[in-house]
Amino acid sequence: MSVTNAWLTLIALSIGSTILAHFGAAGIFASLAILTLAWIKAQVILRVYLGLQNAPSWGRGFGMVLAIYMIGIMGLAVAAS
């Protein structure tokens, strides 16, 4: 992915999460959706902006830790609802 495509993706995802939060979407499913969007954004920044797409093994490692972390955060979000 080129950096410009990454940027467009990030903007689209950010607008998406703001719309979700703003227009009524509440409750646990909205929270999980918002966190999923954040997860994708973090993945895009790691892979494209920080260039881990060119270092596949590191990209996988960071992706895995991020996945565990986001699942943990989602778990805490579910527990709080």
Partner: peptide, 18 residues
């Protein structure tokens, strides 16, 4: 700079939107 970016895209939804 990207690290600062990365932190924000996680911080923003967790703190402002959940």
């Amino acid at each position: 700079w990207h690290m600062v970016d990365l932190v924000w895209v996680l911080l923003f939804p967790i703190m402002y939107l959940l």
